[in-house]
Amino acid sequence: MNRLEIAGTEDTPKVILDKNEGLFEISGRSLPEDAAEFYHPIITWLEGYSKAPNTDTAIQIKLEYFNTASSKLILDVLTKCEKITGAKVLWFFSEDDEDMQEAGEEFSELVEVPFEVKQY
């Protein structure tokens, strides 16, 4: 399966999805105007991956900011993770960032996948 890598910009996050390396990471800022367009390849990749995943898959989400346009798509990404056997989500927030911690906790209530909200 091909590695999906998207470099981060000032309004879109850095993405690395690599089955061979066991790396699954979305990090940075997510404020695109058209979030559906940005997240489409990520969702498609995860869909493909869910058909033949590694034994363990730790999906790391480390966001500094995200807009409401992204929030719906982040939920779609997490929903795709439900279909991946052996997947868990690690949601990171920086020290004292209560809003990002709360966002992680709320997402965890919306999906049926092992979910950890951790400070970094």
């Binding site: 105007e33 807009n67 409401t68 929030s71 719906k72 939920l75 709320e106 919306l110």
Partner: peptide, 19 residues
């Protein structure tokens, strides 16, 4: 917020008032 995020369509450009 929960209701809107769960029920709004992807194609909708955030027009559901989530903002």
């Amino acid at each position: 917020y929960r209701d809107l995020i769960k029920n709004s369509e992807i194609s909708e450009k955030g027009g559901a008032g989530l903002g």
